[in-house]
Design a protein around this nucleic acid. Structure first.
Length: 297
DNA sequence: AAGCTTTTCAACCGCTCCGAG
DNA sequence: TCTCGGAGCGGTTGAAAAGCT
């Protein structure tokens, strides 16, 4: 199937954004949100394609973006996560509040890659058997899981009915606040935001400062066990020694979709779930994508 | 100071994913 | 179930800045 270009190239501007264009984009998004990127430039009066607007906003103009050099801790976090996740820049960015995937990708290619090549041992303290980048990338379907689910960043699809104004238009009662922060009412129907369960965003960074202590590998046997219905989620994970290592009980705040929380334990209840479903759930667990885990009341 | 090389990073491109109809 | 369109992702590019001779 041949797809039409994302935009009609005729008459649309490319290249660096001017301060005036930035101002137009920011003020429009503050007023109206960005429910439909494709339609946004026309509505805002910008001679750009929607894709370009989205990129500019996501990578540069969004109010919560952290500018400036990466700290040593952030660099170490990127290196550790890259070892585990490969070139999944958006997943890595999800662990670094205020940093964008583009920025992380750039910093990796410009100096972290060289740094790792020069002194791989020094940058992976304490753990010599970490998977290679290539191996991590190849093993994405069995990506690691983090320790404390109660502090997991969760990608949340906001309920449009609850989170949006009636017309998807501007939220007039918060004119001076940063636009479109989590849960703000001026989003449109397709808006999504990331939240963390922990009020302090820095805790997320600290959580992953030394990923060698924070992650455990999950291989096919884990999912096979989990899917066999013979073992509970808790026993599968506990058998790996993971929560013992963390000196804490298995998570109780998030119920993975294929599981149910019965009698203080997690049981695999969805007999139709597949390993793909598990990968889906794993994305939720690692905060990488998808809707949130189901909170247990 | 000038010219050349290297580095940085914003932006583009093409692809995949996913939801709506 | 299939098709289509929008969003998002990762790879790549190229202009500008910085460093070097």
């Amino acid at each position: 199937m041949v797809r039409s270009p994302c935009c009609d190239k005729m008459g649309l501007k490319k290249g660096p954004w001017t301060p005036e264009e930035d101002q137009v984009l920011v003020s429009f998004i503050q007023r109206c949100g960005h429910g439909n990127w494709r339609a946004l430039p026309k509505q805002a009066g910008l001679m750009r394609c929607g894709k370009s607007c989205r990129l500019r906003w996501m990578n540069y103009l969004k109010p919560d973006i952290k500018r400036g050099n990466f700290s040593k801790e952030e660099e170490e976090t990127i290196i550790s996560l890259h070892e585990l996740l490969g070139n999944r820049w958006s997943a890595i960015a999800a662990r670094l509040p205020g940093r964008t995937d583009n920025e992380i990708k750039n910093v990796w290619h410009t100096h972290l890659k060289k740094q790792v090549r020069q002194s791989p041992a020094a940058l992976a303290p304490g753990k010599s058997a970490r998977p290679s980048t290539a191996a991590a990338a190849a093993a994405r379907s069995t990506a690691p899981v983090t320790s404390d689910l109660s502090k997991q960043p969760i990608t949340l699809q906001l309920d449009p009915a609850a989170a949006c104004t009636a017309d998807g238009g501007p939220s007039s009662d918060t004119p001076s606040s940063p636009p479109l922060s989590t849960g703000e009412a001026s989003c449109t129907a397709t808006e999504s935001s990331s939240i963390t369960r922990d009020a302090d965003p820095n805790s997320v960074k600290e959580e992953f400062t030394d990923s060698s202590e924070m992650f455990v590998e999950m291989d096919e046997s884990f999912w096979s066990d989990a899917l066999s219905l013979e073992r509970s989620w808790e026993s599968c994970v506990t058998s790996m020694g993971f929560f013992e290592q963390q000196q804490q009980p298995p998570p109780t705040g998030v119920c993975p979709p294929p599981f149910d929380h019965v009698g203080g334990d997690y049981h695999h209840v969805d007999t139709s779930s597949t390993e793909d479903d598990m990968d889906f759930w794993l994305g939720i667990l690692t905060g990488v994508g998808g809707p949130p885990g189901l909170p247990i009341s």
